[in-house]
Design a protein around this nucleic acid. Sequence first.
DNA 1: CGTTCGATGCACT
DNA 2: GTGCATCGAACGT
Length: 215
Amino acid sequence: MGNWHKLTRDFYDRPTLDVARDLIGKILVHNRRGVVTSGVIVEVEAYIGESDPACHAAPGPTARNAPMYGRPGHAYVYLNYGIHSMMNIVTEAIGQPAAVLIRSLDPLEGSAVMRRRRSRKVKGRRAGGGRILPDHDLCRGPGNLTMAMGITLADNCADLLGDCLFVEDRRLPRHEISWSPRLGIRVGTEHPWRVFVVEHAAVSGSTGRSRRATR
DNA sequence: CGTTCGATGCACT
DNA sequence: GTGCATCGAACGT
């Protein structure tokens, strides 16, 4: 299991906005007992420090946000709305709480597995609207992404230099990126800390909120 | 096209 | 008890 080109600790031990920008175009990989799912990162958001009101570290250290204060290059996964796991990557030095939320991927490997996970029933309701999802919808949005990748609270605190959950550098062609305010938050909207690939079908949010036909 | 709203678990006040 | 870094169904225009 050594033929991956994993990002090293130094990559994550940097200013969060730089890490966020540089994560675009990299590959997020989840390897669960040999079942591999992966995708190109096309949309992320930065959450930076106790002075960022939207950051979970805003109230200071708590039991939940402890991973954000820890070593860079680890996962911070938490449950939102009782339903969705949110996948973050811890950045910056120890004691400096910050992370990058992974919002959307363009699926690369394991799309069949992703589709199966997305169509699982959740408390009677069928996820994914019951329709056959196109690839670019499988990991579109942070809740959909974790469901498709099989990322759960069990992945909280995972070391991204390990073999289960990590980011690979494949030096794909450059994407055109853009910055915007973060989505779905009530405070901290003044910061343009969301980065995304322009005009990409797998990106969530305003430009693609309503159904688009194809790509 | 748009807006509203329920589901669902848990950290935090 | 309150409020989410969401999603998609249901309904209104």
